[in-house]
Simulated assay, not measured.
Amino acid sequence: GYAYAWGLNDYYHQLGNNSSSNSSVPVRVRDPDSPSDASKGLKATQVSAGQEHSLAVDKDGNAYAWGDNDNGQLGIKGSGRPYPYPMKVLSSAQSTSAAGPWMRAVQITAGDHHSLAIGTDGNTKAWGSNRDGRLGDGTTNTKWAPVPVAFNLQPVISAVRFDTSAGTNLTHVSNSNSVTVTTPAHQPGPVKVSVDYTMGGVGSTLTDKSLTYTYTPLGVLPQAGGEGILLALATGMTGMGGVLASRRHRRETHRLLHASHE
């Protein structure tokens, strides 16, 4: 399971064996925690060689990089110097070089002064040189830490739950990124809304749990606490935009207020 490298290893240290000597035979990539110990090494499930840098993923999904970092292709923010042994890749531009959090990947690829990975969460990240827009984030600026690749995919909702009860009559609104769903019966009070969706309608199902819906006690009105309130859920690039009550619900609220005044 150890990672090995061979070939050019000049100033950029792309072999990861804590030296700058070229090698015509495979040499063991050093252990990130013990880079001076030649008897230890990095155990990996995947490796990738770039022009002057290298990448690897270990059995736990941790992403590592070493070699040239003049364009941030190692995902180590704030330093352009080369690294002669593996370093953990940051998870995002919001991470810090000292404390992480770190990139966890299922696949990783080293390009020409830039790098790409598919995270364990299914999202694609890119970092390094962004000449010609190779990072796919809609810009051409160099990135010293991973940024999301901006796929032009919209979330497609497949199911909605209120606590553990499923909403019914899920209907996609034509020519929009919205659906309508009928609420199940529930006791008055706030409930967590879970929205299942896929990006572009394909791939793994994701779940957004950021929404809350409040069941309002409506006195003696026929629909009070029962099912039948129609909700519209709007989607966006990063998740659900919100939950909006339908006109019918607003009419019921208005009737309640009117009744209380009487």
Rank of each mutant, 00 (worst) to 15 (best):
H186T: 06
N123C: 10
T124L: 08
V173W: 00
N152V: 12
T142P: 09
R161V: 05
G167Y: 03
D121Y: 13
T139N: 06
T205P: 10
N152D: 15
K125T: 10
S129W: 06
P188H: 05
G122A: 08
Q154T: 15
S129G: 06
T139W: 03
D132K: 12
Y197M: 03
S158V: 08
D163G: 15
F151D: 10
S158N: 14
T198R: 15
G133T: 13
N177G: 10
V156Y: 07
A166T: 14
T140A: 09
G138P: 07
V173K: 01
R131H: 11
V156Q: 11
F162M: 14
K143L: 07
D196H: 13
T198W: 04
D132I: 09
L153F: 13
G201R: 13
T142Y: 07
T182L: 08
T168Q: 02
R161I: 02
W127Y: 11
G136A: 04
T182S: 08
P148K: 10
S204R: 12
H172E: 07
T183I: 02
L170N: 01
H186R: 15
G189F: 04
P155R: 11
A145Y: 12
S129N: 12
Q154S: 14
Q154G: 10
S129F: 07
P188I: 02
P146S: 09
S174P: 13
S178L: 02
G200E: 10
V195F: 01
R131P: 03
M199P: 08
V181M: 02
T168W: 02
Q154H: 12
Q187A: 14
T205F: 05
D196I: 07
A159S: 14
V195C: 00
S176A: 01
G200S: 08
M199D: 09
S194Q: 11
P155A: 11
Q154P: 04
V202G: 04
N177D: 09
